[in-house]
Design a protein around this nucleic acid. Sequence first.
DNA 1: CCGGGGGCAT
DNA 2: ATGCCCC
Length: 511
Amino acid sequence: MNLHSSVVIHVDIDYFYAQVEEVLNPNLKDKPFGVQQGLNMVTCNYIARSFGIKKWRPVKECLEKCPDLVLVKGEDLSEYKKFSKRIAELLHEEFGSTERMGLDEHYMDITKLAEDKLALLTDEELTNIRFAGPFYPNEEAFSKCSCGCENRLMVGSQIAQNIRDKILNELKLTCSVGIAHNKLLAKLVGQMNKPNNQTVLAPIAAAEFMAELKEVRNIFGVGGKTAERIEELGIKSISDLQNCTFEKLRNYFTQETAVRLKEAALGIDNSVVRPSGKPKTVGLEHSCPPITIRSDVEKMFQDLLPQLVEHIENDARIPEGLKVTIRQYNREKKASFKETKQCVLLPSYFKHFDEKIKLSDHAHDLIMKSVMSTFDKIIGKEKFYINLVGLCFNKFRELKRGTSSIESFLKKRKSEGETSDDNDQSPPSKRQKIVNRNSIPANVDQSVWRDLPIELQQELMRSWQSSSTNDNSSDMIKSSTFASESSQGLKLKSNGNLKNVNTLYNHFNKK
DNA sequence: CCGGGGGCAT
DNA sequence: ATGCCCC
Ligand SMILES: Nc1ccn([C@H]2C[C@H](O)[C@@H](COP(=O)(O)OP(=O)(O)OP(=O)(O)O)O2)c(=O)n1
Ligand SMILES: [Mn+2]
């Protein structure tokens, strides 16, 4: 289990919204073209970029730089979501499960796939394999490590080429792909030869690669606020971060953050690729010119609700919660702020029709009443200037039993024996953190382990620690089954004893 | 401060 | 419920 033992791929579709529009309307392909949301140009094709136009600039500024820029409105994301779904399905079918980041990016852990492909090669074939695509920094750098990463990454680069070919042939979309020994580096190195290309990183060059990126904002998880705090320490670049003492970081950040920053600066990232399940929330929002009248607000929500229901009609789940969002202009602070409030949805609000989820007969009016009373609670009695309203379904419950996702997934896996084959959605999972590769007990089946909810992982670790003091049995997990969420039948066989962790899982779900 | 999403920690 | 992060 050395530092370079994994192969991670990051796929990022080029100029995503704009490229989707090009597929929908090929006339746009030979023109400078961008997608507009409100007053902003969100993204544009690379012809437009050759005029010096950057993503996320005001439309006005873009038209000054390129008067011939063609613009299409992109406030409605449904087409982009459709393509996003097709991409996810294609990747999953052909190469295994993925972790989604937004609509157009996916991480994949292809370590097993690469190792399996390597194992099939003869010695002669092994000496003749070549990298696909460009590398960082150069080909020689790969041979300086003898842990086997060179061959794994070489095969990884070939798989990356296959992925790009597949996405281009099936969906007519170009993408950029990074191949590296961890997620952090895969994502960053993939940007090197954008668009429509790929880049593989030599592990020994990781720290040097990070240093050349300069800005600490390039580190995943370091946003505006964290970057500001880092700079308060006088640290202005990733190489500053590499060279500063750990204690200096530890004084301003939590232990966890300090370690993460220090490691990331050196190109070290132990976080695991975590297959995405179905979305945990599905929302819709509309911005609008300032509204001051309650009935106008109601019209906005009236409009949103049916659209939102359409978004989940094929989901096989129903939401039990609804988050109401408004954005208000605050004249004292001269700024807009979002406020939200939860309200409860009853299962009886939904019915099936044509295999699809629809609102029951009077549910629209009932939900609207909840929404508006929730709105009143947010506003109080003050006058208001609302410039955005939003609704977001959450607290989803699975409808089907028995053959539902996770149960059938693990059962199938059992019958397939040892070959761990990623296939289905993962159960709820929390942020990375504790789920480092290195912290997982060695004799645990990792392909099963990594898909467990973090709460269960933690609870199991605790139980193993305590049981090892009064018990000489090993920690081996022999098998596990996970029934659908509605029956909550998660059981883990451990030490020959069937541990029923239902109560545990229920407990965590309540809060 | 502007689009329209989504995830997770607190 | 809010804040920070990601796209
Ligand atoms: N703040 C943001 C960031 C991104 N997006 C959308 C528009 C992009 O098309 C899509 C993907 O984001 P990317 O950062 O990957 O940008 P692009 O794919 O458009 O361009 P690139 O070719 O640089 O990847 O997500 C958005 O709506 N709002
Ligand atoms: Mn992209």
